[in-house]
Design a binder for these strands. Structure first.
Length: 344
DNA sequence: CTTGATTCAAGGGAGGGCTG
DNA sequence: CAGCCCTCCCTTGAATCAAG
């Protein structure tokens, strides 16, 4: 699910569900962060690869001191003293969920946050972690009932890597047969799922999974509690910490003025230096004027703007009328092309 | 030498097509 | 029919190639 609009819709649904829960029960949905190093990629001799990175900030483990039982396979992949090891060794305290999206990246806060708006009289102590997801090729985030989540993570098996020793380290979780859809393949092999991390609530869990193990996750911790402000466009956290791990942005939906400025700057550069790269390829560059909108949305946008994807960038930039029509179309981009808020 | 453009590898499941 | 091979799915970033 590397698509901007799919993430925006997921985020909108989470916010709606949280608001509904608050209106019905008077509390915000709370969750804790689980990580599963046993499912993470480890790269090859020829190519280094790291699924996980962490920004510990000023967090200290004594904030969440309750010891946790560390799974042996997780411990094998994330050794004592490795960055982020504190996320394994102690129990997380639960806290309200906040969600933010920028381009193809999604961020979910979990654990011990207290919104000053909803909890004006509660002491603001404790820690919180934000899980930032970069979905890469085929990663996705799903919502599953908590009782199913508990069954699935209960048992891990060797993954499908042809190297048996490596498969032992790159593990998968076993999906109980009763949850396999009718019509799925009918052989005797195991049904597996790679859950890299999860935000776990009382009745549901958001699971971050990727059969190819190519997506990447980044955890940001803090000693002070996070706020909704931290997860909003323009905040210090938003600008300097939340999204710095992965290339991309400004977001065409949430940071439109900045995105248009980048687009205009890109045009000037093309006019000076010229490039025949097809506009579709330009939009797919994470650092380019598309800011990481993803392949499907880029094609949808060009279709909506009536511009052929293979149009050379200099043809688009040198024609005032063509460029202006494209720019005006970019200004109309909302939560997703062809998707109305009412459908969410 | 610099810059830009292109190629490649990383990952695992699914399904089509072929062979024994 | 089992088993195997091949292709598709699609992004990132390093490596390589090409042009100025």
């Amino acid at each position: 699910m590397p698509e901007s609009q799919a993430l925006q819709i997921f985020a909108a649904r989470v916010r709606k569900a949280c608001l509904k829960a608050f209106l019905n029960c008077g509390i915000l949905a709370e969750g804790v962060l689980h990580i599963f190093p046993r499912t993470w990629a480890e790269g090859t001799a020829a190519k280094a690869y790291s699924t996980f990175t962490v920004d510990q900030g000023d967090y200290t483990p004594d904030i969440e001191p309750t010891p946790a039982v560390v799974n042996e396979y997780d411990a094998g992949k994330m050794k004592q003293g490795a960055p982020g090891r504190y996320l394994l060794e102690t129990e997380r305290k639960s806290g309200p969920i906040h969600v933010a999206v920028r381009g193809k990246c999604l961020a979910i806060s979990a654990g011990h946050a207290r919104s000053p708006f909803f909890y004006p009289f509660v002491a603001h102590h404790g820690a919180q972690h934000i899980l930032v997801c970069h979905f890469g090729l085929e990663g996705e985030i799903l919502t599953v009932p908590r009782y199913i989540y508990d069954q699935v993570i209960a048992r891990s098996v060797p993954g499908n890597n042809p190297n048996a020793a490596k498969a032992e380290r790159l593990r998968s979780f076993l999906i109980p047969r009763k949850y396999v859809d009718p019509g799925a393949r009918e052989d005797n092999s195991l049904y597996k799922i790679n859950i890299l991390a999860a935000v776990v609530m009382e009745e549901d869990a958001f699971i971050v999974c990727d059969f190819a193990r190519i997506m990447q996750i980044h955890v940001i911790s803090n000693s002070r509690f996070w706020t909704e402000e931290d997860m909003s466009p323009g905040s210090e956290t938003w600008k300097n910490r939340l999204w710095t791990r992965y290339a991309g942005g400004p977001d065409w939906i949430l940071e439109k003025d900045d995105a248009l400025a980048v687009l205009d700057g890109w045009r000037q550069k093309v006019l000076r230096k010229g490039t025949e790269t097809p506009i579709i390829d330009v939009l797919l560059q994470a650092d380019g004027p598309g800011g990481g909108i993803g392949q499907h949305l880029a094609n949808d946008l060009l279709f909506g703007a009536a511009i052929h994807p293979d149009t050379p960038a200099d043809v688009l930039c040198e024609d005032d009328e063509l460029y202006d029509s494209f720019r005006e179309y970019v200004e109309t981009v909302r939560v997703g092309v062809g998707v109305k808020y009412t459908e969410i």
